[in-house]
């Protein structure tokens, strides 16, 4: 175990861990909200995120072209990419709700059936992205769209829009600008969402349905709309996560959602599934612990450390760090 390395680079490891943890946290929101309202684990949420990364990629390719943008243009491109990611992820989340869940919920299908439907939808969405060159071929667009659909099964990377190399120092450690951007925007989005759920009328509807769907319906809450809203919010957050992820990693692939989805789901459980603030705490803790674990034991131990932590925390706090409570938040 390499303690001296961990302690000598504590600040840097913590910041990079927090940045990746922030991405986990934003994806975890989608799992946690849907679980809070429907007691259903939406395993297709990882693909909602994946489509967001591609929306970011495609939007930047379109806008950047081959030139090097500078100054204000960069902000424009970033804003457009963020918007594209949110729109696409939100739309995919809504489609999932409409085609993979609502018909099942209407027929009062058991939760297990909805879970299988989610896993099925996840494979369909991921593999569809993995054969996008063939799909474009059906419409005779294979050549025209080569920048977008080429290399369907390998990593695709974004044109550089921000100079990640911009560093600033905390003490004697260099911190990457992009990590700070990722952490701050993620926290900002979380606070915004938390306030929305706590204060707005729609938020009250979501909390009411989470607490007791039948009573909420009797009180005039439109449950279909509430469920739609839940999926949409989760999708939008996944879109933000996708944008921030692309800012940091710059590379995506059709199956990128798989590992991140599992990690984000872990983060949600770690913080207390169904609890918005829990998702934030769980994501950040997971990201940081993974980094510390890699530093201590070596990179191959990263996932071992993460999941041992999950098991240990659940042993002592079966409902996660902050407990399950979307419905119980009664401010």
């Amino acid at each position: 175990m390499n303690f001296s390395f961990l302690f000598n680079n504590f600040a840097e490891l913590t910041v990079t861990g927090l940045a990746f943890g922030a991405v986990y946290a934003l994806i975890a929101l989608g799992y946690t909200m849907v679980y809070g309202v429907l007691q259903l684990i939406n395993f297709a949420h990882s693909e909602v995120f994946m489509y967001g990364t591609f929306a970011t990629l495609w939007m930047t390719i379109t806008l950047v072209g081959s030139g090097n943008p500078g100054g204000l243009q960069t902000f424009g491109i970033m804003a457009a990419a963020l918007l594209a990611a949110m729109v696409v992820s939100g739309a995919i989340a809504l489609m999932l709700e409409k085609f993979a869940y609502r018909p099942l919920i209407k027929r009062n299908a058991p939760r297990l059936i909805a879970l299988i439907s989610a896993i099925g939808a996840s494979f369909v969405l991921a593999e569809l992205m993995g054969v996008r060159d063939d799909v474009a071929g059906w419409f005779g667009l294979r050549e025209t769209l080569d920048d977008y659909v080429g290399g369907a099964r390998v990593n695709q990377s974004m044109p550089n829009i921000v100079q990640n190399r911009t560093l600033f120092a905390i003490g004697e450690y260099n911190i990457r600008m992009v990590d700070v951007i990722v952490i701050l925007s993620a926290i900002l989005m979380m606070v915004g969402l938390d306030q929305f759920v706590r204060r707005s009328k729609t938020g009250r509807g979501i909390r009411a349905t989470a607490q007791d769907p039948e009573t909420a319906a009797l009180m005039g809450v439109n449950s279909t709309r509430v469920i739609q809203m839940t999926f949409l919010l989760g999708g939008l957050m996944a879109g933000v996560a996708a944008f921030l992820y692309m800012l940091k990693i710059e590379t995506t692939k059709f199956d990128v959602g798989f590992l991140l989805g599992i990690k984000a789901f872990t983060a949600a459980v770690l913080g207390g599934i169904g609890n918005l603030r829990g998702a934030l705490v769980g994501g950040l803790v997971l990201g940081v612990v993974e980094n510390w674990g890699s530093a201590l034991f070596g990179g191959e131990w990263r996932h071992v450390v993460a999941f041992v932590l999950l098991v240990v925390i659940l042993l002592f706090r079966p409902t996660g760090i902050l407990g399950e409570s979307l419905g119980k938040a009664r401010t």
């Binding site: 940045a19 940091k248 993974e290 890699s294 530093a295 990179g299």
Partner: peptide, 8 residues
């Protein structure tokens, strides 16, 4: 996809 610990 994230190798920040190794990079550090």
């Amino acid at each position: 996809t994230d190798f920040s610990a190794t990079v550090t």
